[in-house]
Design a protein around this nucleic acid. Structure first.
Length: 422
RNA sequence: GGUGGGGUGGCAGAGUGGUCUAUCGCGGCGGUCUUGAAAACCGCUGAACCGCAAGGUUCCGGGGGUUCGAAUCCCUCCCCCACCGCCA
């Protein structure tokens, strides 16, 4: 959510910023509702003040006296006026709030102009050009792939996009998660194991609701299976005021992630590229607003170091305004090179949300300067998503003997140097 | 799932229809005293919104209702605790 005061005082600035994201936003509607709300609020408050002073006077009068009875009669009109205005106020407030929730976050000044993914800026590359095995094939074409990654049986048991991981496949998933969590702990992130279902209030705070409920799995009890650990992690401090001295708070969490991915199709969804349930470790920070862009660079560095230790070639994209997403102010994507598919796969997305989520979630800190609560900034990034990292490892490291040689960093976690499809 | 007890400011805990502007205490901050500290004493100490300001209004788990007036009465939902049932 945007700061209503910013919107009220600098609507043109907000309008220009939203235009950079190439999103539609009915600012005039929000502003009109804001004005109407404030005027109704004043009316209601004046009527209430009248009630309160009458109340004080009546408390001093004898209960059945003529003066008392006259006062009751007089105040009946005020009471009904209050009731009527309060309904209007509440209604206007609800519509104003909904309209505010529909406004996207504003992009940071350093976000490049652009409309489509082609306009994103590749700002760094590592390990390229990659000279992998000449025989590299897409991972789903590797001999024996189905023995370790069983999609048909997953489809039978649950549905398309819910694969089984078997033997070395399952072991490698566990090794990767263990590697990610261990490295992130070394980098200063406290490990958390959160609930993997969240309520509507939590999904609203991080921006999944309203409007994006179709992308999540919803239970009979109106709980949502988490699309990312970002949701339960961020909501940990919902409606709380933190100690300024405690900032930044850095945490990481492994969860399975559930995405309905309605509308996806084509080559994107082959093999491990895009599934409905996948494992991911998420990095999350609550920071002082003054430091949030420095923290974004550190976050990106932490995610990058994981790829470097895995010896995977990758590039860093700075997302343009049009490809930024609803809630982000600035975002970097990390993409690994998959030598078999000869394409980039996104394995991490590192974003600064500034106060957008924190304002929805009412996560604040007490400023030592003013003594007043202020909104924190939140950042998060994957560190990392398992299936696509796995896909790249399979494609890039396949040996002539049909085994996959694992990077040194994984060997102790995996318990061996090679993954075998037999 | 069943029965019972609860949800009041950072904590604790009064208040059961009208100066509630929510008591008292603890904690915290400041001051007096002190070489310094402790103790004692004094003062201050929740959040949100509207307003240029003066000031005003709201918040006693959430929502709704009754009333001239609700922390207090009614309805409903949520959550917590205890015991029982079930159970990895």
């Amino acid at each position: 959510m945007l700061d209503p005061k910013l919107l009220r005082e600098s609507p043109d600035l907000v309008r220009a910023a939203i235009a950079k994201k190439h999103l539609d936003a009915d600012l005039d509607n929000v502003l009109a509702l804001d004005t109407a709300w404030r005027s109704l609020l004043t009316e209601v408050e004046q009527l209430r003040a009248k009630q309160k002073s009458a109340n004080t006077a009546m408390a001093a009068l004898p209960k059945g006296s003529p003066e008392f009875i006259a006062k009751v009669q007089e105040m009946k009109a005020v009471a009904s006026a209050v009731k009527e205005k309060e309904v209007q106020l509440k209604d206007t407030e609800t519509r104003w709030h909904e309209a505010l929730l529909s406004l996207p976050n504003l992009p940071h000044a350093t976000v490049p102009e652009g409309r489509t993914p082609e306009d994103n800026q590749a700002i760094a590359e590592h390990g390229m050009p990659f000279t992998g095995p000449a025989s590299a094939v897409p991972h789903w074409e590797i001999a024996g792939f189905d023995r370790l990654f069983d999609f048909p049986r997953g489809a039978k048991v649950t549905g398309a996009g819910f694969p089984f991981f078997i033997g070395d496949g399952a072991r490698l998933v566990r090794a990767l998660l263990n590697f990610f969590l261990t490295e992130n702990a070394k980098a200063g992130y406290t490990e958390v194991s959160p609930p993997i279902f969240v309520n509507a209030a939590s999904a609203t705070a991080t921006g999944q609701l309203p409007d994006k409920e179709g992308q999540m799995y919803e239970t009979h009890d109106k709980l949502y299976a988490v699309p990312t650990a970002e949701v339960p992690l961020t909501n940990f401090y919902r409606d709380e005021i933190l100690d300024e001295a405690a900032l930044p708070v850095c945490r990481c969490a492994y969860t399975p992630c559930f995405r309905r991915e309605a509308g996806s199709y084509g080559k994107d969804v082959r093999g491990l590229n895009r599934v409905h349930q996948f494992d991911k470790v998420e990095l999350l920070k609550w920071v002082h607003p003054e430091t949030s862009y420095d923290e974004l660079e550190k976050l990106r560095g932490d995610a990058e170091s994981l790829l470097q230790k895995l010896e995977l070639p990758y590039r860093v994209l700075l997302m343009c305004g049009g490809d930024l997403g609803f809630a982000q102010a600035k975002k970097y994507d990390l993409e690994v090179w998959a030598a078999g598919q000869k394409r980039w796969l996104e394995v991490s997305s590192c974003s600064n949300f500034e106060g957008f989520q924190a304002r929805r979630a009412q996560i604040r800190f007490r400023s030592s300067e003013t003594g007043k609560p202020e909104i924190v900034h939140t950042l998060n990034g994957s560190g990392l998503a398992v299936p696509r990292v796995l896909a790249a490892l399979l494609e890039n490291n396949l040996q002539p003997d049909g085994r996959v040689k694992l990077p040194a960093a994984l060997v102790s976690h995996f318990g061996g140097e090679y993954l075998s499809f037999n």
